[in-house]
Protein backbone atom coordinates (compact mmCIF):
# COMPACT_ATOMS: atom_id res chain seq x y z
CA UNK A 1 0.00 0.00 0.00
CA UNK A 2 2.80 2.46 0.81
CA UNK A 3 4.32 1.46 -2.48
CA UNK A 4 1.16 2.64 -4.19
CA UNK A 5 1.14 5.99 -2.40
CA UNK A 6 4.78 6.57 -3.35
CA UNK A 7 4.26 5.65 -7.00
CA UNK A 8 4.47 8.05 -9.94
CA UNK A 9 0.86 7.41 -10.81
CA UNK A 10 -0.38 8.50 -7.40
CA UNK A 11 1.80 11.60 -7.50
CA UNK A 12 0.42 12.51 -10.94
CA UNK A 13 -3.08 11.91 -9.57
CA UNK A 14 -2.58 14.03 -6.44
CA UNK A 15 -1.29 17.00 -8.42
CA UNK A 16 -4.05 16.99 -11.04
CA UNK A 17 -7.19 18.78 -9.79
CA UNK A 18 -9.30 17.44 -12.68
CA UNK A 19 -8.35 13.87 -11.80
CA UNK A 20 -9.05 14.32 -8.08
CA UNK A 21 -12.45 15.94 -8.66
CA UNK A 22 -13.59 13.44 -11.29
CA UNK A 23 -12.37 10.49 -9.23
CA UNK A 24 -14.18 11.83 -6.16
CA UNK A 25 -17.42 12.30 -8.10
CA UNK A 26 -17.12 8.83 -9.61
CA UNK A 27 -16.43 7.15 -6.27
CA UNK A 28 -19.27 9.02 -4.54
CA UNK A 29 -21.70 8.03 -7.27
CA UNK A 30 -20.62 4.41 -7.24
CA UNK A 31 -21.02 4.32 -3.45
CA UNK A 32 -24.44 5.97 -3.69
CA UNK A 33 -25.49 3.39 -6.26
CA UNK A 34 -24.20 0.43 -4.27
CA UNK A 35 -25.81 1.59 -1.03
CA UNK A 36 -28.95 2.90 -2.71
CA UNK A 37 -31.33 0.83 -0.52
CA UNK A 38 -29.74 2.34 2.61
CA UNK A 39 -29.60 5.94 1.39
CA UNK A 40 -32.87 6.24 -0.50
CA UNK A 41 -35.69 7.64 1.69
CA UNK A 42 -38.24 5.35 0.00
CA UNK A 43 -38.12 2.20 -2.09
CA UNK A 44 -39.69 3.37 -5.36
CA UNK A 45 -40.46 -0.19 -6.45
CA UNK A 46 -42.46 -1.10 -3.36
CA UNK A 47 -46.06 -0.11 -4.17
CA UNK A 48 -46.98 -0.07 -0.46
CA UNK A 49 -44.60 2.81 0.23
CA UNK A 50 -46.13 4.99 -2.47
CA UNK A 51 -48.98 7.43 -2.07
CA UNK A 52 -50.63 8.53 -5.30
CA UNK A 53 -51.70 11.75 -3.59
CA UNK A 54 -48.01 12.70 -3.50
CA UNK A 55 -47.82 12.76 -7.32
CA UNK A 56 -46.15 15.75 -8.98
CA UNK A 57 -44.81 17.29 -5.79
CA UNK A 58 -42.24 19.96 -6.76
CA UNK A 59 -38.79 19.73 -5.16
CA UNK A 60 -38.40 21.07 -1.58
CA UNK A 61 -42.08 22.05 -1.34
CA UNK A 62 -44.66 20.35 0.86
CA UNK A 63 -47.35 18.49 -1.04
CA UNK A 64 -50.72 20.31 -1.09
CA UNK A 65 -52.67 17.24 0.12
CA UNK A 66 -50.38 15.20 2.31
CA UNK A 67 -47.86 17.82 3.46
CA UNK A 68 -44.96 15.45 2.62
CA UNK A 69 -41.83 17.11 1.32
CA UNK A 70 -39.33 15.60 -1.12
CA UNK A 71 -35.78 16.72 -1.82
CA UNK A 72 -36.08 16.42 -5.61
CA UNK A 73 -39.85 16.18 -5.94
CA UNK A 74 -41.95 13.25 -7.10
CA UNK A 75 -43.16 11.85 -10.41
CA UNK A 76 -46.72 11.20 -11.57
CA UNK A 77 -47.13 8.14 -9.33
CA UNK A 78 -45.79 9.83 -6.23
CA UNK A 79 -42.39 8.17 -6.40
CA UNK A 80 -39.56 10.16 -4.85
CA UNK A 81 -37.33 11.31 -7.72
CA UNK A 82 -34.21 11.19 -5.53
CA UNK A 83 -34.83 7.51 -4.74
CA UNK A 84 -35.57 6.57 -8.35
CA UNK A 85 -32.34 8.28 -9.42
CA UNK A 86 -30.33 6.28 -6.86
CA UNK A 87 -31.91 3.03 -8.01
CA UNK A 88 -31.61 4.07 -11.65
CA UNK A 89 -27.93 4.85 -11.22
CA UNK A 90 -27.51 1.39 -9.76
CA UNK A 91 -28.86 -0.18 -12.93
CA UNK A 92 -26.96 2.18 -15.25
CA UNK A 93 -23.68 1.48 -13.48
CA UNK A 94 -24.32 -2.26 -13.24
CA UNK A 95 -25.08 -2.52 -16.95
CA UNK A 96 -22.12 -0.29 -17.84
CA UNK A 97 -19.60 -2.14 -15.68
CA UNK A 98 -20.87 -5.60 -16.65
CA UNK A 99 -20.88 -4.74 -20.35
CA UNK A 100 -17.34 -3.39 -20.20
CA UNK A 101 -16.15 -6.44 -18.24
CA UNK A 102 -17.77 -8.71 -20.80
CA UNK A 103 -16.24 -6.79 -23.71
CA UNK A 104 -12.90 -6.78 -21.92
CA UNK A 105 -12.79 -10.53 -21.28
CA UNK A 106 -13.93 -11.32 -24.82
CA UNK A 107 -11.55 -8.79 -26.36
CA UNK A 108 -8.56 -9.92 -24.29
CA UNK A 109 -9.24 -13.56 -25.12
CA UNK A 110 -9.65 -12.99 -28.86
CA UNK A 111 -6.76 -10.51 -28.95
CA UNK A 112 -4.35 -12.88 -27.16
CA UNK A 113 -5.46 -15.73 -29.36
CA UNK A 114 -5.03 -13.88 -32.63
CA UNK A 115 -1.75 -12.32 -31.56
CA UNK A 116 -0.17 -15.49 -30.22
CA UNK A 117 -1.54 -18.13 -32.55
CA UNK A 118 -1.62 -16.08 -35.76
CA UNK A 119 -2.46 -17.64 -39.13
CA UNK A 120 -6.07 -18.30 -40.00
CA UNK A 121 -7.33 -17.66 -36.49
CA UNK A 122 -5.87 -14.19 -36.60
CA UNK A 123 -7.20 -13.44 -40.08
CA UNK A 124 -10.76 -14.43 -39.20
CA UNK A 125 -10.85 -12.58 -35.87
CA UNK A 126 -9.28 -9.40 -37.16
CA UNK A 127 -11.39 -9.31 -40.31
CA UNK A 128 -14.51 -9.70 -38.18
CA UNK A 129 -13.23 -6.81 -36.06
CA UNK A 130 -12.70 -4.66 -39.15
CA UNK A 131 -16.19 -5.36 -40.41
CA UNK A 132 -17.72 -4.49 -37.06
CA UNK A 133 -15.73 -1.26 -36.89
CA UNK A 134 -17.32 0.01 -40.09
CA UNK A 135 -20.66 0.26 -38.24
CA UNK A 136 -21.23 2.70 -35.35
CA UNK A 137 -21.24 0.69 -32.13
CA UNK A 138 -24.61 2.07 -30.98
CA UNK A 139 -26.16 0.65 -34.16
CA UNK A 140 -24.52 -2.73 -33.56
CA UNK A 141 -25.85 -2.74 -29.99
CA UNK A 142 -29.36 -1.90 -31.23
CA UNK A 143 -29.31 -4.73 -33.75
CA UNK A 144 -28.04 -7.27 -31.22
CA UNK A 145 -30.66 -6.09 -28.74
CA UNK A 146 -33.37 -6.46 -31.39
CA UNK A 147 -32.32 -9.96 -32.40
CA UNK A 148 -31.86 -11.13 -28.80
CA UNK A 149 -35.25 -9.69 -27.89
CA UNK A 150 -36.80 -11.61 -30.73
CA UNK A 151 -35.19 -14.84 -29.58
CA UNK A 152 -36.32 -14.61 -25.92
CA UNK A 153 -39.86 -15.80 -25.22
CA UNK A 154 -42.37 -12.99 -24.64
CA UNK A 155 -42.95 -13.72 -20.94
CA UNK A 156 -39.23 -13.38 -20.08
CA UNK A 157 -38.52 -10.27 -22.15
CA UNK A 158 -38.75 -7.70 -19.36
CA UNK A 159 -36.76 -9.82 -16.91
CA UNK A 160 -34.07 -10.58 -19.45
CA UNK A 161 -33.84 -7.03 -20.82
CA UNK A 162 -30.98 -6.04 -18.50
CA UNK A 163 -28.89 -9.09 -19.46
CA UNK A 164 -29.68 -8.65 -23.14
CA UNK A 165 -28.56 -5.04 -22.80
CA UNK A 166 -25.25 -6.11 -21.25
CA UNK A 167 -24.71 -8.62 -24.03
CA UNK A 168 -25.56 -6.10 -26.74
CA UNK A 169 -23.33 -3.31 -25.42
CA UNK A 170 -20.52 -5.75 -24.59
CA UNK A 171 -20.54 -7.34 -28.04
CA UNK A 172 -20.54 -3.93 -29.68
CA UNK A 173 -17.40 -2.92 -27.81
CA UNK A 174 -14.93 -5.86 -27.81
CA UNK A 175 -13.04 -4.75 -30.92
CA UNK A 176 -11.09 -1.98 -29.15
CA UNK A 177 -9.76 -4.42 -26.57
CA UNK A 178 -8.94 -7.14 -29.10
CA UNK A 179 -6.98 -4.75 -31.31
CA UNK A 180 -4.87 -3.32 -28.50
CA UNK A 181 -4.20 -6.70 -26.89
CA UNK A 182 -3.26 -8.25 -30.23
CA UNK A 183 -0.82 -5.44 -30.95
CA UNK A 184 0.80 -5.73 -27.53
CA UNK A 185 0.88 -9.53 -27.76
CA UNK A 186 2.73 -9.39 -31.08
CA UNK A 187 5.41 -7.28 -29.39
CA UNK A 188 5.64 -9.45 -26.27
CA UNK A 189 5.68 -12.70 -28.25
CA UNK A 190 9.10 -12.04 -29.71
CA UNK A 191 10.72 -11.36 -26.34
CA UNK A 192 13.10 -13.77 -24.67
CA UNK A 193 10.97 -14.66 -21.67
CA UNK A 194 8.29 -16.08 -23.93
CA UNK A 195 10.86 -18.13 -25.80
CA UNK A 196 12.21 -19.36 -22.46
CA UNK A 197 8.76 -20.34 -21.25
CA UNK A 198 8.17 -22.19 -24.48
CA UNK A 199 11.49 -23.95 -24.14
CA UNK A 200 10.76 -25.35 -20.70
CA UNK A 201 7.58 -26.80 -22.17
CA UNK A 202 4.82 -24.58 -20.88
CA UNK A 203 1.56 -24.93 -22.77
CA UNK A 204 0.48 -22.10 -25.11
CA UNK A 205 -2.50 -21.35 -22.87
CA UNK A 206 -0.30 -20.95 -19.79
CA UNK A 207 2.10 -18.72 -21.69
CA UNK A 208 -0.74 -16.55 -22.94
CA UNK A 209 -2.51 -16.17 -19.60
CA UNK A 210 0.32 -16.29 -17.05
CA UNK A 211 3.16 -14.64 -18.95
CA UNK A 212 1.88 -12.40 -21.74
CA UNK A 213 -1.42 -11.19 -20.24
CA UNK A 214 0.07 -9.36 -17.21
CA UNK A 215 2.36 -7.44 -19.56
CA UNK A 216 -0.39 -6.17 -21.86
CA UNK A 217 -2.85 -5.06 -19.18
CA UNK A 218 -2.00 -1.39 -18.72
CA UNK A 219 -3.41 -0.14 -22.05
CA UNK A 220 -6.43 -2.37 -21.40
CA UNK A 221 -7.09 -0.45 -18.17
CA UNK A 222 -7.20 2.87 -20.04
CA UNK A 223 -9.56 1.56 -22.70
CA UNK A 224 -11.77 0.03 -20.02
CA UNK A 225 -12.21 3.39 -18.26
CA UNK A 226 -13.03 5.26 -21.47
CA UNK A 227 -15.29 2.38 -22.55
CA UNK A 228 -17.16 2.63 -19.26
CA UNK A 229 -18.20 6.21 -20.02
CA UNK A 230 -19.24 5.20 -23.52
CA UNK A 231 -21.11 2.16 -22.23
CA UNK A 232 -23.04 4.27 -19.70
CA UNK A 233 -24.04 6.69 -22.45
CA UNK A 234 -24.89 3.82 -24.83
CA UNK A 235 -27.08 2.21 -22.17
CA UNK A 236 -28.83 5.51 -21.47
CA UNK A 237 -29.39 6.09 -25.18
CA UNK A 238 -30.84 2.62 -25.76
CA UNK A 239 -33.07 2.89 -22.69
CA UNK A 240 -34.16 6.36 -23.74
CA UNK A 241 -35.13 5.02 -27.16
CA UNK A 242 -37.23 2.36 -25.46
CA UNK A 243 -35.00 -0.54 -26.49
CA UNK A 244 -33.17 -0.98 -23.19
CA UNK A 245 -34.01 -1.19 -19.49
CA UNK A 246 -37.80 -1.65 -19.08
CA UNK A 247 -39.96 0.74 -16.95
CA UNK A 248 -40.12 -1.94 -14.24
CA UNK A 249 -36.33 -1.67 -13.79
CA UNK A 250 -35.65 1.90 -14.89
CA UNK A 251 -32.09 3.05 -15.53
CA UNK A 252 -31.19 6.74 -15.85
CA UNK A 253 -32.04 6.57 -19.57
CA UNK A 254 -35.49 5.13 -18.86
CA UNK A 255 -36.10 7.85 -16.26
CA UNK A 256 -35.21 10.52 -18.81
CA UNK A 257 -37.58 8.85 -21.28
CA UNK A 258 -40.35 8.98 -18.68
CA UNK A 259 -39.49 12.55 -17.71
CA UNK A 260 -39.62 13.78 -21.29
CA UNK A 261 -43.37 13.17 -21.24
CA UNK A 262 -43.81 15.81 -18.52
CA UNK A 263 -41.68 18.48 -20.16
CA UNK A 264 -44.66 20.30 -21.64
CA UNK A 265 -46.85 20.18 -18.57
CA UNK A 266 -44.27 22.00 -16.45
CA UNK A 267 -42.99 19.17 -14.19
CA UNK A 268 -39.39 19.85 -15.19
CA UNK A 269 -37.81 18.11 -12.19
CA UNK A 270 -38.83 14.61 -13.31
CA UNK A 271 -36.56 15.05 -16.34
CA UNK A 272 -33.97 17.51 -15.08
CA UNK A 273 -32.43 15.63 -12.15
CA UNK A 274 -31.93 12.25 -13.88
CA UNK A 275 -30.43 14.07 -16.88
CA UNK A 276 -27.98 15.98 -14.64
CA UNK A 277 -27.01 12.77 -12.86
CA UNK A 278 -26.31 11.01 -16.14
CA UNK A 279 -24.29 13.95 -17.38
CA UNK A 280 -22.21 14.18 -14.20
CA UNK A 281 -21.55 10.45 -14.20
CA UNK A 282 -20.55 10.28 -17.87
CA UNK A 283 -18.40 13.41 -17.65
CA UNK A 284 -16.59 12.27 -14.48
CA UNK A 285 -15.76 8.82 -15.85
CA UNK A 286 -14.75 10.32 -19.18
CA UNK A 287 -12.37 12.84 -17.63
CA UNK A 288 -10.90 10.13 -15.41
CA UNK A 289 -10.26 7.97 -18.47
CA UNK A 290 -8.62 10.87 -20.33
CA UNK A 291 -6.39 11.58 -17.37
CA UNK A 292 -5.44 7.91 -16.98
CA UNK A 293 -4.54 7.69 -20.66
CA UNK A 294 -2.18 10.65 -20.38
CA UNK A 295 -0.75 9.50 -17.05
CA UNK A 296 0.09 6.01 -18.31
CA UNK A 297 1.50 7.28 -21.57
CA UNK A 298 5.29 7.27 -21.11
CA UNK A 299 5.79 9.74 -23.95
CA UNK A 300 3.88 12.45 -22.08
CA UNK A 301 5.74 12.10 -18.78
Amino acid sequence: MTRFFDSDIFYAFRTSPVAVVSATVTVLMVLAAVFAPLIAPTNPFDPSSLNLMNGFTPPMEPNAFTGDSFLLGTDDQGRDVFSTILYGMRISLFVGVAAVLFAMVLGIFLGLLSGYVGGWTETIIMRAADVQLTFPSILVAMLIFGVAKGVTPVEYRDQMAIWVLILAIGLSDWVQFARVVRGATLVEKSKDYVAAARMIGRSPLTIMVRHILPNVLSPVLVIATISLALAIIAEATLSFLGVGAPPTQPSLGTLIRIGQGFLFSGEWWILFFPACTLLALALAVNLLGDWLRDALNPRLR
Partner: peptide, 14 residues
Protein backbone atom coordinates in the same frame (compact mmCIF):
# COMPACT_ATOMS: atom_id res chain seq x y z
CA UNK B 1 -18.69 15.65 -27.23
CA UNK B 2 -19.62 14.12 -23.87
CA UNK B 3 -23.26 15.27 -24.00
CA UNK B 4 -25.43 12.41 -25.30
CA UNK B 5 -27.33 13.31 -28.49
CA UNK B 6 -30.74 12.76 -26.98
CA UNK B 7 -30.03 15.21 -24.13
CA UNK B 8 -29.06 17.89 -26.66
CA UNK B 9 -32.37 17.29 -28.42
CA UNK B 10 -34.36 17.54 -25.17
CA UNK B 11 -32.47 20.70 -24.18
CA UNK B 12 -33.29 22.33 -27.52
CA UNK B 13 -36.95 21.32 -27.22
CA UNK B 14 -37.09 22.77 -23.73
Amino acid sequence: VSLPTFLIGILLIY
